[in-house]
Design a protein around this nucleic acid. Structure first.
Lengths: 202, 202
DNA sequence: GGTGTGATCTAACCATTGGAAAGATAATCT
DNA sequence: AGATTATCTTTCCAATGGTTAGATCACACC
């Protein structure tokens, strides 16, 4: 009847298959729709099989988050080694959020997974080193990194939420380059940042 | 036996009581922990009573989101009418996110509620007018607003997630003023934004 | 004062979920 | 081959969101 591998009792490659299925579900319907049973259904196994491989639902989410941080680190790393590396890292950050929405949404929703998981912590730390430019940033690097990271992170989340005006266009990378122009080193560090009171709002 | 109002069949003020209970639960345990049954328990009614007043779980979340947007609008409005109104609006935005975390988290998680709800749309639009400085922003205002909004929104969410380095301190408002110094009008609009390649990373 | 009509709430039920436990099956080691 | 371990299923449980039928109450109206 069934010409293909048929249904064996042992899947042989179930853990990665479940992970893929989880990312697929989240990408299609959001993290809230990710149920162990739905993921297991897509992989053709019982939901207890998923629980076996990941411990529980949070364990599966933890695996998604860790994978996400590793992927982000990779993207940031190759962006860093370009001309305008600083800007390109910001663009890469937003591109990652949009093109790997499922991972991104899980990563920044700590209540969904176990943030203290060793794998997650390592992957997160590696990404942080790239985002702040060094493993031990001084005060200036810290503030600059926080500003830049906040800008692109806010842009990415607002974009994903549909909270940016449509008039800005439909290309998130382009919007990133546009708003990144508003980021600079403080003209007069220590002094009040905003002098042009009437520049905005009109 | 019971000297107090006892338990009447009709609560008399149930809808607002349920709303308060929902905000309380979300504030304590996050949006994922908000169940109709838990909220109803706190209000001393059956979960069907909550469903009666809000239609369904998404209806209750929708009410939380709408209330949140109205509260945010109010905070932004009073911040606008100060010296350094632009900066103070950013600070107010972050302060709102931290002090009304429950509302904030629901507002920016559209899958939790009905975004097309009339009440939500109005409240959201009112906040947007303040954030962009006008009801019909031109390209410059749009970009500037998106940059500023992205910065404070990213900062707020990263702060709530615990994704900012602890070395930045424990006062989100202070951090807001710090990173806001990196925001300015583009020095050379239209030209590449980043000239100082080596300023960051080191 | 009595009546009835609509609003508000409860009780009971259902399908779905995450998790735990016990057992079945297969791969691997010796 | 036999034993051991890893992997997966079945079965059960408590909790949840949602629906429906019915109970209780408030309030206008006469």
């Amino acid at each position: 009847m069934q010409s293909q591998p048929a249904r064996r009792y042992h899947h042989g490659d179930l853990r990665p298959a479940l992970l893929r299925a989880a990312v697929e579900v989240i990408g299609q319907s959001g993290p809230a729709a990710m149920s162990l049973r739905e993921v297991a259904r897509r992989a053709g196994v019982s939901h207890a099989a998923a629980a076996y491989h990941f411990g529980d639902k949070a364990g599966l989410m933890t695996a998604v988050a860790a994978q996400g941080y590793r992927m982000l680190t990779e993207e940031l790393r190759s962006a860093r080694d370009t001309r305008d590396g600083f800007l390109e890292m910001g663009v890469a950050y937003v591109r990652f959020a949009v093109s790997h929405r499922a991972h991104f949404e899980v990563m920044y929703r700590p209540e969904l997974y176990r943030r203290d998981d060793a794998e997650v912590r390592e992957a997160r730390a590696a990404a942080a080193v790239l985002l702040y430019g060094t493993a031990s940033p001084d005060a200036g690097q810290l503030a600059a990194g926080a500003a830049a990271w906040s800008l692109v992170h806010g842009l990415a989340t607002l974009w994903l939420n549909g909270n940016l005006p449509q008039q800005l266009g439909s290309d998130p990378e382009e919007i990133t380059r546009l708003v990144a122009r508003y980021l600079s080193t403080p003209v007069n560090p220590g002094a009040p940042a905003q002098r042009r009171r009437n520049s905005y709002p009109p």
